[in-house]
Design a protein around this nucleic acid. Sequence first.
RNA 1: AGCGGGGUGGGGAAGCCAGGUUAUCCCGCGGGGCUCAUAACCCCGAGGUCGGUGGUUCAAAUCCACCCCCCGCUACCA
Length: 668
Amino acid sequence: MGRWLVTAAWPYINYVPHLGTMIGSVLSADVVARYLRLKGEEVVFVSGSDEHGTPIEVEAIRRGVEPRALTDENHKKVKRLFELWGISFDNYTRTESEVHKRFVREFYMKLYKRGYIFTEVVKLPYCPKCRRFLPDRFVEGTCPYCGYEGARGDQCDKCGRLLEPLMLINPRCTICGSKPEVRESKHWFFDLPKLTEDLKEYILNNPNLPDNARNMSLRMLEEGLKPRSLTRDNKWGIPAPFPGAENKTIYVWMEAVLGYISATMEYFIRKGDPEGWKRFWLDPSTRTLYFIAKDNIPFHTLIFPALLIASGEGYNLPWRVDSVEYLLFEGMKFSKSRRIGVWIDEALELFPADYWRFVLISIRPETKDTSFTWKIFREVINSVLNDVIGNFIHRVLTFTYKNFNGKIPTPTKLTERDKAVIDEAIAISNEVAKLIESFRLKDALSRATDIARLGNRYLNEEKPWDVLKQDKERAASIMYTALRLVKMLAIVLAPFIPFSADKIWKMLGYKDSVHSHRWQEVAEDLPSGQELGRPKPLFRKVTDEELKRIMERTLPKTSPKVTAEELSKIDIRVAKVVEAERISGSNKLLKLKVDLGGNDIRQCIAGIGEHYEPRELIGKHIVVIANITPKVIKGEVSEVMLLAAISTDGKLALITTDREVKPGSRVL
RNA sequence: AGCGGGGUGGGGAAGCCAGGUUAUCCCGCGGGGCUCAUAACCCCGAGGUCGGUGGUUCAAAUCCACCCCCCGCUACCA
């Protein structure tokens, strides 16, 4: 018997995870953990909520609550959701766990004493108004290379060039919009380069790393590692334990990975076996599995192993880092801010967990980015899960139930064909096992489906409904054979669709749970005479109307398409503001006179009074729709409509031209 | 820009590292069969020359070179 530590990347808990997070870590890990348990292996499966760091701190400030209150709420919610998804964690904890916080502080003190940590004073952007140091991505400004105004402190999205926050022209804090200044701050660093040789040896001698992870890691080693900063000036985090670091916290990345160890400790403490974790972390025969997405590779193949080596404790290094590519949503990246995607709470409001589990594993992005689309969802559910698997099980169970008194019939004599079918299904089960053991979960599920396909073919050819009329004994053997395949499906599908697998198990008449049984039982006979449960369809199809409704609800709103001809009706022009005044009795409305060239002066009533002073508008070149139907507002006629956008801080921003343009010029 | 991954019939994937008879599987599509089952199941068929160009070879989806496109990482987003 083997011993396994199965881990899933810790979801950042500023929000509910989406489907991509699910397949990228938690669900994949669960399938393997469940499989290993079925095989009778000793398994501990851990993960937890990653809850420290700037984004959560900022979000809490925005909402006017303590960060801890925010993460308490989200952690509780997400933990519950994972249960509903059937994720079989032995311990789903959090980085605010006392065990974790203590472990992290002790761990880094050890590294400190062993000489792997040094300090350096660095210059960092600091927002005087927010009174905080800003991570690079919390500074925005104009790109010094291409002039793009929305460039972030680490990189310009427009031209792709790498930046430093201090290079930006007109830098601003993305939280409050004010101008950051530069301040010095002392920070503690982890001396990663010191471990280069150990890491090289680890990567080269680990045959279980997938190619993408190994190649990337070796490249990075060749290019040379750099020290990693360990501390932050944040308040929300684990206090750094180093002498002189009283106001610093440990950088989230550098502490969350240690959660794999602390979560294991916590699990065994709770079990009343406080030394138990050592078998999983110090006994080299234990294999450790990490399920992550591709963006996370260096942390698991380089930084985490380096920390473990530096501790000198002899911790097991990652045995397998299983990194998947990205799941896309209808071809787009999942985006919380743009509401693109499906989140795991709303998913369960739409369909049962097993439907999602089945689809997500079917499209698991093992070699390249893969899109989740509702069309694929419907196809997989309808024609594979429902038609091939669900219908096979249902036709076998209903036929047997009706014709053999609701009991598993006794096979008087199995023909060569019957035995061959059973053997083939056992062979398929063995292949499924091999595929899971090679972490090819998508292929494994697809191969498992072949047991149902085999069964369907067998029934069509043996025609028990015909045979029954002349030879009930023969029909009994046929149905017994078919039921054997149903039993295999229950076991083989158990890691993938645990709720449904258990339903199948109970319909076969078993009183216990399939999850307390063993994978090896696929090769074992059925108890003839056992009373079957009343057969009920396991799954249902997704209807077109249902899908349409869901798509309307979950797909990002896209503007209706406009033809060039329709667009040409709109007369958009540059206009110069010649007069501007407030309209009495309204703090929103301004009355503008705009020049459209050729003595064409029009009046415009605009709701921008809260964002602009009249005098700052005079002389500005703005963009207006010149032929909009005039409208009377507050007793004043508005003949044109001006264009403005909402800026990042929620204010209105007028659209202007970036070169001198004559008033009245058409905008094309 | 550098590095890593990917581009295979209408859609989704496998094959590539160890080159070799008709390029595989699932969905969809066309035709046929069956009627136990949730209009489910089974069989047959059409459809691709494997991102592009050039090269190595008796032989290239597979090896080499260059180019194009998509995704990720590049160390203070987590």
